[in-house]
Simulated assay, not measured.
Amino acid sequence: MQTITWNQQVVKRNNKSLVLQTIIEKEPVSRADIAQITGLNKATVSSLVNDILEENLIFESGPGESSGGRRPVLLHFNKTAGYAIGIDIGVNYVLSILTDLKGNILIEKNQPIKNVAFEAVTDVVSEMIRSLILEMPESSYGAVGIGIGVPGIVDKQGTVLFAPNLNWSNISLKQHIEEEFKLPVLIENEANAGAYGEKQLGAGQSFQDIIYVSAGIGIGAGIILNGELYQGKNGYSGELGHVIIQANGKKCSCGSQGCWEVYASENALLEMAPQQDATLESLVALAEENDSEAIALFEKIGASIGIGVNNIINAFNPEQVIIGNRLVVAKQWLEKPILETIQTHTLPFHQKEVQLQFSRLSVHSAALGVSAFVVENFIRDGVTVL
């Protein structure tokens, strides 16, 4: 029997990943097309495709268009071979979704929370995961992993170092959930997850340099440069909600003063509202009835969002800025003051090319982003050499 060396295994694994990724991106696609796209020879492609068919990650369908010879059999990615769980932990909610391997949402659960203590939140998260697994359709691989977005600083080992709006520090969330469910778990900053969700499935699909602004109870940012998520040296990038826009300004939950999120977030909106029991939803309902006070509140928040977006555009010169998370529901009152602030303050050269858009995935950006990371890890780590 021929022994496969370690180098040959690495080459085969890489080629197999390349073939599978090509099928995912180009489906339906023939073996001959894969050979042409990847540069691999036809015999290698055929052998690798047979391996992947055995693993039930792809399937064949009837003949495609002929270019002269025999009509080719087409290959498709089996998006229901397994499912991913994506969870977005907000400051006042937990949103969870079950997606297929192409990011289509099958099941969604959203629960408001008031108690943000770690134990209370993880009880809600665990219950949601159990419920999603129970309701999940049968498949070859079942749940392939769990992704969780958290509004805070997360290191590359999945430890939540600091989440000021949750009052968490040095929390081993990854270990906690992995021990309970015995599944691969990844933890990501929710703004990074939102940026990735929009890049893969939403408003950012046609752009390479994107800043995603997560505007919820606090403010965070996810940075996509050259089509890749930029995380900084230790994974801490994107804390633009804590850029100072007012020297010696209002106190922030991070311990500093005058941070952008103190003036431009959902929290800032609710603090300015005259009604003690105001919520984002109640203020939107008032604005929809042309309540001038509610509309003025949104316009003030929009102008403050615009100040931070101006700083982002001047600093990064991106192709696109996407406004996402909960404040997206107030787009019709926020968009104009944001654009007016950019037009007044942003350097003219920087204004020319940039596009301001609101999230296409609405409140699902972060949950879909971590779900996409889970699927990518499964595809990469799940490719075995037979």
Rank of each mutant, 00 (worst) to 15 (best):
M1N: 06
Q8T: 10
Q9T: 08
R13G: 08
N14P: 01
V19T: 09
V19W: 10
Q21R: 07
I24F: 15
E25I: 06
P28V: 05
P28D: 06
A32P: 01
G39D: 10
G39H: 10
L40C: 06
K42V: 14
A43M: 11
V49W: 11
E55Y: 07
I58E: 06
P63Y: 10
E65L: 15
E65S: 12
S67I: 13
P72N: 12
V73W: 03
V73G: 01
L75P: 00
N78Q: 09
I87T: 13
D88S: 07
V91C: 14
V91I: 11
S96P: 01
S96D: 02
L98C: 12
T99K: 02
L101D: 01
I105W: 05
I105D: 03
I107P: 01
Q111F: 11
P112K: 14
I113Q: 01
I113Y: 01
N115T: 13
N115A: 09
F118T: 11
E119A: 14
T122I: 14
S126F: 07
E127L: 13
I133L: 14
L134K: 15
E135P: 06
E135D: 15
E135Y: 08
S139E: 02
S139F: 05
Y141K: 14
G142A: 09
G145M: 11
G149Y: 13
V150N: 03
G152L: 00
I153P: 00
Q157M: 14
T159N: 13
V160T: 08
A163I: 07
A163G: 11
K174F: 10
H176P: 00
E179I: 02
K182Y: 13
A191T: 00
A191V: 08
A193F: 02
A193W: 06
G194T: 00
G194E: 09
Y196L: 15
G197E: 12
G204Y: 04
S206F: 10
Q208P: 04
D209W: 07
I210D: 04
A215C: 15
G218D: 01
I219S: 05
A221K: 03
G222K: 03
L225K: 12
G227C: 04
G227Y: 02
G227H: 07
L229K: 01
L229M: 10
G232S: 04
N234T: 14
G235P: 07
E239R: 07
L240E: 01
N248I: 00
G249N: 04
E261M: 01
E266H: 05
L269H: 02
L269P: 02
A273D: 03
P274D: 10
E288T: 11
A294R: 08
A296T: 04
E299I: 00
K300Y: 11
G302H: 06
G302E: 09
S304T: 05
S304I: 06
V309Q: 07
V309K: 02
N311K: 13
P318N: 00
P318F: 11
Q320R: 14
Q320M: 15
L327F: 05
V328N: 13
A330K: 00
A330L: 01
Q332T: 13
W333A: 04
E340P: 00
Q343V: 03
T344E: 15
Q351M: 06
K352S: 10
E353V: 08
V354S: 03
Q355V: 10
Q357S: 15
S359W: 04
R360F: 05
S362I: 05
L368H: 01
V370P: 02
S371P: 11
S371L: 05
A372I: 05
F373N: 14
D381M: 09
G382T: 09
G382E: 07
V383A: 14
T384G: 12
L386T: 08
